[in-house]
Amino acid sequence: MAELKINIGKLSLKSPVTTASGTFGYGMEYADFMDIERLGGIFVKGTTAEPREGNPYPRMAETPAGMLNAVGLQNKGSDYFIHSIYPKIKDLDTNIIVNVSGSTVSSYVACAEKMAALEKIPAIELNISCPNVKKGGMAFGVTATGAAEVVRAVREVYPKVLIVKLSPNVTDITEIAKAVEAEGADSVSLINTLLGMAIDVNKRKPILSTITGGLSGPCVKPVALRMVWQTYKAVKIPIIGIGGIASWKDAVEFMLAGAAAVQVGTSNFIDPAISMKITGGIREYCDKYGFKTAAELTGALEISGNV
């Protein structure tokens, strides 16, 4: 049987299958449906230095093969996480990775610094790509200089594995990826949601309270896959592929395009045990095609001719 273990910089994952921030709570929400310790990691809900109420309801609109959300980083803040959530999840035998968000460089730094002090949090995912907050969030992630600025500041206070989550709402995602690599990011994860919109024709009003929101689900997969492939050619740091993964085949596609690991997101809502089915499917795929390790899948895409 193929070895599933992979590495993201200094971080060792027992499987390339992880779950995406904002779709998997703190892991416990899914413990009735699967053995969450079999995951390579759990990217927990976006956490900010201070508590955030998020955006007003309605926050969700269903779309063909996907959904729009405008949650707006609702969370109880880093201190609540440290005192009320961390003690419950710190002994899980998987990587608990905190998605760190902010509205200013100093608020990213404040949250990252607190997470650095937590022994059982081996990595953070810096969220410079949330499309649902007015200040900060995606604003940092849509220019190379903005992305570099926040990564540089966080790198100074965060010595452990630093993953930067990139926005697809840019002209050239490779420019942003190269900028954060240059500032010392250990890995990039992509993509966050695509900015979208939905309208209720009967009311002639937007469905979301924020008018626009972030699109996720199988509908974004081809865009995400293309961006992972482009980024793989542009940077040397490992890539975590995200975007509409709903089956082992989707996950393998991302790995062939260059992802070292994947995050399963919106599909957790339809099948709360989907990440386990994906894990089993990747192993079977490796065995079928003679890959000794899942790591060998990364970038194994074969392109013929002068493309």
Partner: peptide
Amino acid sequence: NTMACGIGACLCCV
């Protein structure tokens, strides 16, 4: 309220 996950993970139905 309109929901996505139904298990407290997505925070859409608040």
